[in-house]
């Protein structure tokens, strides 16, 4: 039984699903639009809650998919469904026939420029969590110049009706605390503040990380949103926020401000998604069949979803979904 399964997206979800499907005796084919496999996680330095190097996980995944047929720098240009299954045309004009399709297209990072009041792209020393992670990986960023005072803003582009994203992006709370500890490791003398609405420490070991952040790293967590950022004469950032526990407005001068940008649906797949007849849910992500037993299914028979294309998800969530989607696809092929 050598049935082709087309997997769109070569991030954590796509790679893990491919690995499992191959073990089940099917033929997964990965189509990845960028030049590398690994997706967002390959851009990450260490993972919460235990500061585990992301590279370890990514390398393991890569070694497992090395025999799987993979197209890099390639997108799906067109897709049709008939009684034989799916017929896709790739951007390199190659044609692929597959019995099932897995959408593992993941997420995009919220464009911080859209939250203009935080000054990203306007003031030099405002950066995103993704850029900070790159700094941890490479040790280089001209904005980080022995800072004395550093701030993190949670929920940038999440839980915010003003940018039309009302959902929680799930991983940014824990990521912020992880990054706060890490920057404190690099600059032990710096004061580090995080500005949060709620801290959603939902996973195993996450709450411990929160306590550790405060006890061992002396990070100050302030409950309240930053409302406005401006730049003073010295190029430092002046932020205004409200400390809702004290019930008082506060003003603070910072050297660097990190914006914890939310996940949004990866829209580069929208035309293919529409062709397959899959709608978006109210958060703008892809709509799966249901939240429970049908979480990997879609409105289109033979099209499956895994990972952050349906909602913001952590890496463990994504791996779990990738494994479950493989089972679903296996059953689908066998029961046909």
């Amino acid at each position: 039984m050598k049935e082709n399964i087309l997997i769109i997206g070569g991030g954590a979800a796509g790679m893990e699903a491919a690995t499992q499907l191959q073990k089940m005796g099917l033929t997964p084919i990965i189509v990845e639009k960028s030049e590398n496999l690994g997706g967002h996680i390959a851009q990450w330095d260490r993972l919460f809650p235990a500061f585990h190097p992301a590279k370890d996980v990514v390398d393991q995944m890569l070694s497992q998919v090395k025999d799987i047929k993979t197209y890099l720098n390639t997108e799906v240009a067109d897709i049709q469904k008939d009684n034989d299954g799916f017929h896709a045309v790739l951007s390199n004009n190659e044609k692929i026939d597959a019995k099932a399709v897995i959408l593992a297209t993941g997420f995009d990072i919220f464009k911080a420029e859209r939250k203009q009041e935080y000054g990203y792209g306007i003031y030099n020393n405002v950066m995103t969590s993704v850029e900070l992670e790159k700094f941890f990986r490479t040790g280089k960023d001209e904005r980080i110049n022995n800072p004395k005072k550093i701030g993190f803003v949670h929920c940038v582009g999440a839980r915010d009706v003003k940018v039309c994203n009302t959902y929680c992006s799930k991983v940014c709370c824990t990521t912020a605390l992880k990054q706060a500890c890490e920057i404190k490791e690099v600059f032990p003398d710096a004061e580090v503040y995080t500005f949060y609405m709620d801290l959603r420490m939902f996973g195993p070991g996450y709450e411990d990380l929160y306590l550790k952040t405060q006890k061992d790293f002396d990070v100050k967590c302030v409950r309240g949103r930053v409302c406005e950022v401006s730049e003073n004469m010295d190029g430092k950032l002046v932020i205004k926020a409200e400390d809702t526990l004290f019930g008082k407005p506060l003003k603070m001068t910072l050297d660097v401000l990190i914006l914890m940008c939310a996940m949004e649906k990866n829209k580069s797949i929208d035309t293919i998604q529409q062709k397959l007849g899959i709608a978006d849910n109210s958060d703008g992500f892809m709509q799966n069949k249901d939240m429970y037993l049908g979480m990997n299914g879609t409105a289109q028979d033979g099209v499956f979803v895994a990972g952050a294309c349906t909602a913001p998800k952590s890496l463990p969530d994504t791996i779990g979904e990738a494994r479950s989607v493989a089972t679903q696809v296996f059953n689908y092929i066998n029961n046909k």
Binding site: Q116, E117, G119, I122, Y123, C227, E228, V229, S230
Partner: peptide, 9 residues
């Protein structure tokens, strides 16, 4: 305009 610093700038 304080919330749209591009204009102020």
């Amino acid at each position: 305009t304080q919330l749209t610093p591009k204009i102020m700038r």
